[in-house]
Amino acid sequence: MTDISATKEPQQEKIEKPRPIKKVCFIVAKSTIDSAYAAMVMANGARMEGIDVEMFFTFFGLDVINKSKMTNLHVATVGNPSMPIPTMLGGLPGMEALVSNQMKKEMERLDLPPVDEFMEMIHLSGGKIWACKLAMDMFKLEEKDLVEYLDGVLTVGDFYQRAAGEGTQIIFI
């Protein structure tokens, strides 16, 4: 029989103050409006709390920092169980744009900035913006296609090195 009490942490460690989060690294792999805003709100919120931020954009997530696409992101109206319309209707031409515009109006009402402004805010607040090398090669993208304030193009290994340090969290969106 195993002695459970021996594996318990000493009482003293339990009352130790929790160590604060120092850095949050976001991996953004999707480009739907909801994914983009989830990442941007969390990243901006971290900077507001004095937490360092690194954002790594990969696969379709690259659209969020692609100058020609970032202002025209969409909601997925098909294959999205939270959509209050039937999937068959969601597939009709123009439906994605219609629903996306509705959502953008609602966001403006809440003073949520549009994607291009929000990304720039994160950059100006000191957040680092990175693009994934592999995904850029795959989509035949060049740095000039992406936002001017891009901090660089990284391999996965580079990204993990940037995530080094105590108090770092990695979030996949």
Partner: peptide, 25 residues
């Protein structure tokens, strides 16, 4: 922070530099 950035009083970059570590707070 968005409103402050548009206020004309400061910009977002300077605001973060003036009050490092959670500027609005």
């Amino acid at each position: 922070i968005r409103k402050l950035g548009k206020s004309g009083v400061t910009d977002i970059k300077e605001f973060y530099a003036l009050f490092p570590g959670g500027p609005l707070k």
